[in-house]
Design a binder for these strands. Structure first.
Lengths: 217, 217
DNA sequence: CTCTCGAAAAATGTATACAATATCAAAAAT
DNA sequence: ATTTTTGATATTGTATACATTTTTCGAGAG
């Protein structure tokens, strides 16, 4: 619902938020780690004000947590969390495909194809960069939501994928199944290109189900 | 995703957030109104620090907006916004009912029945209190999500219903169709009580569709 | 009269000082 | 030895001062 489209001059709060979020989703900061304000101040060389703003946002976004009034910690990501998010994702990703039926332009298809190819390229490399692969996975699913034109769906997709990314890094699932997932994306995009939306919907439902199975191992 | 269950001593930021949010969802603050920090400081008799925290949260929650780096304003709620949210709601409310099939306890059913009766009582009064009715509507749908045990679904439901509440107040839709909606709730809860989950799912889908129709008038 | 430019005013972003609370460790009591 | 108390320390919540940006609005050019 919040609108990233309006460009705001890069503020220290924003930079701090991006930096800390990146450290969390890339696994440098691990679940349970305390996000002490003073420590982050030194590390990022800013005062507490922007740090606090960043932490608030992370808490609201579900990447950090603050019980009682004590310190903020990186939130645990449990399998259960991901299963619950996946239950929601199954509904919303298929919804996205249905909505695309009336919304997808040649321009949009090109964009999806480009993201997919990019992902293939990354996965093809011998010693793949899994963090980069997770980012492309994020981009692809978010793009799918964005192309529906439904702002709320887009916002929700971002929340789901952000949390999922954190899990993918920590669990090593991407390392194990990265290539498989890329193939599934390929299939979905293919159906969208050829206008076979019903097949695309089935394919994306299978994709989400497959993701869930891989996680549960 | 954020967890309201952890009790934190009521902080000034929290109080300010609740106060401003209430004014927005109850229509005292109208879309486009500027949320000037100094003005809110005077009004709520606190410094800018807690006010800023509250505003940040409102922006993140989708009730306010900040383009560029200028002032924060109450976000416009367009019909289009509500239609988009409703597209998502249709999927997630039916998902909630499906999930309840394995989760709903007698205790949970009692809670839903209680909320529903409360709502009926409110709607039965000649000069109904529509703001209260909108609150009960919020409570009922949120309870439905909460009883699934899916934290992400609950969080998303809160976001959807918060935005919807704002719209219901501003549009006067509840005033026109409040009674109708209560009847539909009654039907859904009835099916859940008798364990007819398939019918409940159809009923809630119809309910969401009906809401969308009423909005589009 | 309209438009542009720029300085004054207002508002937001940031830093820091102070207050309240939580944390932790050492001493006292059992 | 274990638990409790208590005070020192660290950390967060709040207020405020300062820096930077945005807005306003009038003077002057065209």
């Amino acid at each position: 619902m919040q609108d990233d489209s309006k460009k705001k001059r890069e503020t220290l709060s924003e930079a701090a938020y991006q930096a800390i979020k990146r450290d969390i989703t890339q696994g440098k900061l691990r679940p349970g780690d305390v996000l002490g304000e003073e420590r982050l101040c030194e590390e990022l060389a800013v005062s507490r004000t922007p740090i606090r703003a960043a932490l608030q946002r992370l808490v609201y976004e579900g990447l950090a947590q603050t019980d009682d009034n004590k310190s903020v910690r990186v939130l645990q990501v449990t399998q259960e969390d991901i299963v619950q998010i996946t239950q929601v994702r199954r509904e919303l990703e298929t919804l996205a495909v249905r909505l695309l039926k009336d919304k997808l332009t040649p321009e949009g298809i090109r964009r999806l194809r480009h993201l997919c190819d990019e992902e293939k390229r990354l996965a093809a490399v011998e010693t793949a960069d899994y963090l980069a692969l997770i980012d492309r996975d994020y981009d692809l699913h978010v793009a799918l939501a964005e192309l529906t034109g439904n702002q709320f769906l887009l916002d929700t997709m971002k929340r789901m994928k952000t949390k999922s990314s954190q899990f993918l890094v920590l669990s090593g699932t991407m390392k194990k199944y990265g290539i498989t997932g890329v193939g599934e994306h390929e299939e979905i995009i293919g159906f969208l290109e050829s206008g076979q939306y019903d097949y695309a919907e089935v394919a994306i439902r299978n994709h989400i189900n497959a993701i869930c199975d891989r996680i549960l191992e």
